[in-house]
Design a protein around this nucleic acid. Structure first.
Lengths: 218, 218
DNA sequence: TCGACGCGTTAGAGCCTCTAACAGAAGCAC
DNA sequence: GTGCTTCTGTTAGAGGCTCTAACGCGTCGA
């Protein structure tokens, strides 16, 4: 699942600690997948692990820290899923289907990243780097396209603001395309995963494919 | 806010009861707007109303019933906001801006309808009628367009499935357009309200306008 | 006027998060 | 190997939440 990071475990205590933290997270994922993030309970996890409640506070400072780590893990998981495809020069269609497969594999993980935000609490610090990497992969795929777009008003707006904001090394037209791709993929996926298409008598995959085809035909 | 329904209050007790229920809901909306739906607490509302905890259980069977009513109210609020515009024959652009204004006025209300679903718990019974009305307004606006689309694969898919599913009285092309409109508007709005565009150095309103223009140019 | 109903109260069970104080085991230096 | 230190898990408990039960009391309606 998670690739071995740069920091290798050294002492046996750190080894054990990392293992217990991973076990806690695994139980947390199971709990989230079945009951949603709002129902996540450290106490319930402890009970399932055959350990008594406050023991988990040795490994996570609190419920918020655990959820925060789950969010960043979910973000990283998406980037890790996209990276191999992007490195092999996948086009936007392949990227779209990769995102969709990732979302369908665990809807609550998707919503952990792109779902309802809690007003106070956002952007777990390590997130922006991963977000930037995802955006960079999208931009690469967009820059590889013909891009015969005449200067649209939004592209002009992007060009105007680009100097002020953090540097995107892509032309405004590619950035526009990447943003449109992102919002449209999210639009279909979010409504599909939330069940807003159930009972409407069509296949969400077909709508997704149609949106993608329309997006690519521009 | 909520139009006077068909059932007028009769006895003074029912009058009082309806008033207290409305007051509870108002406090609930304030609490949700500032802390999100997951932080909604009947106890906190009671404290704010200067009343003791379990008193509120005379008016709502529990937290779930209150939230369910808030969800249906939010749904109805969107339909009520859209209806005047739709009745005056507003086009898709006007509808889109109406939806956006409604969403920006209270993001948490938007997420109550279109945000992260709780796995077990969905579709509060009176919701499908409101959802159908919203879809009908969209379909009317879409049917009024030129619609010179040649039979796309997704429209064919819709035509094929249409007989089996509940009757949509609109041609497949219009339904396709309505679905695309819905998903694209939601895609931009959801990401904007969740704050995924902050720090990217562009105006979300411009992206929304660009998406809308692209959608209408089809 | 008087009965019945509805309202708000407190008490309490059971869940949760999280802190504090304590006992035991494992690692590490010597 | 011995002993110190550090980390681990334990129980106790405070304070919050949802929700039920049992109890006075006021008000509505006949």
């Amino acid at each position: 699942m998670t690739g071995t990071g740069g920091t290798g475990p050294k002492s046996p205590r750190e080894r054990y600690r990392a293992q217990v933290r991973a076990e806690i997270k695994q139980h947390a994922w199971e709990q989230i997948a079945t009951a949603g993030a709002s129902a996540l309970s450290l106490n319930a996890i402890a009970k399932r692990m055959g350990v008594s409640g406050p023991a988990l506070y040795r490994y996570y400072a609190g419920r918020d820290e655990l959820i925060t780590e789950l969010v960043t893990d979910a973000y990283r998981s998406l980037a890790d899923t996209l990276r191999p495809a992007a490195e092999q020069g996948a086009d936007l269609a392949a990227l779209a289907h990769t995102v969709r497969a990732w979302a369908l594999a665990d809807p609550q993980r998707y919503f952990l990243v792109y779902g309802t935000p809690v007003p106070g609490f956002r952007a777990p610090a390590g997130t922006t780097a991963v977000s930037d990497e995802i955006m960079a992969m999208l931009l690469d795929a967009c820059a590889a396209l013909p891009a015969a777009e005449p200067a649209a008003p939004f592209a002009a707006h992007l060009a105007e603001r680009r100097e002020r904001a953090g540097g995107h090394p892509a032309p405004p037209a590619a950035l526009h395309r990447a943003l449109s791709f992102w919002t449209r993929v999210h639009g279909v996926l979010s409504l599909e995963l939330a069940g807003h298409f159930t009972g409407m008598g069509f296949d969400p995959a077909q709508l997704f494919a149609a949106e993608l085809a329309d997006l690519l035909s521009r």
